[in-house]
Design a protein around this nucleic acid. Structure first.
Lengths: 124, 124
DNA sequence: TGTTGCCTTCGACATATGTAGTAGAATGGC
DNA sequence: GCCATTCTACTACATATGTCGAAGGCAACA
């Protein structure tokens, strides 16, 4: 379930709240995105073909629903990144994260906090 | 500096050892990749156009050199993933990692350790 | 019932991406 | 010098992606 950049935009809006019409999605799209209504319809059609989104008619209007969970899509994208850019392993990614100056101190702190909380709640 | 999937393959081989000729790269490409020599040349030409790779002639043969570091390319890919699939923040990604159990307890521990070391050495 | 306004379906088109074949130049033997 | 090998530079082409515009259907309203 590989999504393209444009498709992610649509899916993000759809996951936010659904079912949704093309118009709903248009309104909820990221500010930076400014597509014509038909562009959104085209993306939706392609997503339906891909089985990433379900479509049902309500009167003359299509109502859409994600068929792929955000979690699943994220996993797939994450795996791709790992395979492509980090030798397919989490290790290199972890190193990268830790060493990368681009991660702000705040992000690092957040990372640590979450890891600690996780460790506790799962008794690891 | 956005690389396509095929370009990542080439860059990965080039980062491994460089400078390198197209032939060198061909030999070092991932087993799964099985491109014709000219396909590799095409990718290299495009990477040179993009300024991701430098090209110098040695006799009648081109020798290539990465102009973009692996670190930089990784950062760019990582940021793209974050923006596209994780609301642009590290938090959601970490949550995802923790919940998807993509990180083993060992990896989590390693990540924490690294973050702590970083924090100390930099007085953050 | 003609006018609006929103929806839908189709078709279109430029650019990006993946993958390679061909033809001609340069090189290293023999 | 001539041949086989190896490069390079071009060209090509299918499919994927990003972005619509046009034309026609239906519903509400003046």
């Amino acid at each position: 379930m590989k999504l393209t950049e444009a498709e992610w935009q649509i899916m993000n809006a759809l996951w936010q709240k659904h079912p949704a019409t093309a118009r709903d999605i248009m309104d909820r799209l990221d500010r930076r995105v400014n597509w014509a209504y038909t562009t959104i319809k085209t993306m939706l059609t392609r997503l339906v073909e891909k089985k990433a989104v379900g479509e049902v008619k309500a009167g003359n209007t299509s109502v859409y629903e994600p068929l792929v969970s955000q979690q699943k899509a994220r996993l797939s994208a994450f795996r791709s990144l790992l395979d492509q850019a980090f030798d397919g392993a989490v290790g290199p990614l972890v190193h990268f994260l830790a060493e990368e100056e681009q991660l702000t101190a705040k992000e690092k702190a957040e990372l640590k906090k979450i890891l600690e909380r996780e460790a506790q709640s799962k008794g690891e």
